[in-house]
Amino acid sequence: MSAGGRLENANPVIFQRSGERLLTASDEDEDVHDRIDDREIFDLIRSINDPEHPLSLEELNVVEQVRVKVNDAESSVGVEFTPTIPHCSMATLIGLSIKVKLLRSLPDRFKIDVQITPGTHASEEAVNKQLADKERVAAALENSSLLEVVNQCLTTRSI
């Protein structure tokens, strides 16, 4: 994947992590129905590891809460992510990781749409097309070396 061990973006800008979501009284109230909201989806994907840095997608600002849209009633989720540099060869892999994380974490009624933030990547269209194609995503996950990298991105880091 990465070209001979050389990092493509060796010195990325690091962003602060948002804290844990604050617990409210209604979260603990059995009678309140908590709708799935943007923050909840963002919390699912913000801790995904970057494939080449020991940092999370949130710390690299690849994912942001404003670029997450969810509609619980209509069962749809849209996520846009921003590669750190326009020629990043990891873009597909990052998109795939986000997609897989959401597939594993959301009820199957949801339609999941993962795209590159418009105008932030050289081969935006090609990547978007790959990520939207169910068959290609499924085929990619049959590839055990690809699955290995995705799983590593999704492993919770122990500090």
Partner: peptide, 21 residues
């Protein structure tokens, strides 16, 4: 939400069981 978040964490780990990586 609290229930969902526990389910997400547990399920995520179980997906990794026996899977490459």
């Amino acid at each position: 939400r609290l229930v969902r978040s526990e389910a997400v964490q547990a399920r995520g780990e179980w997906f990794l069981v026996g899977s490459p990586g």
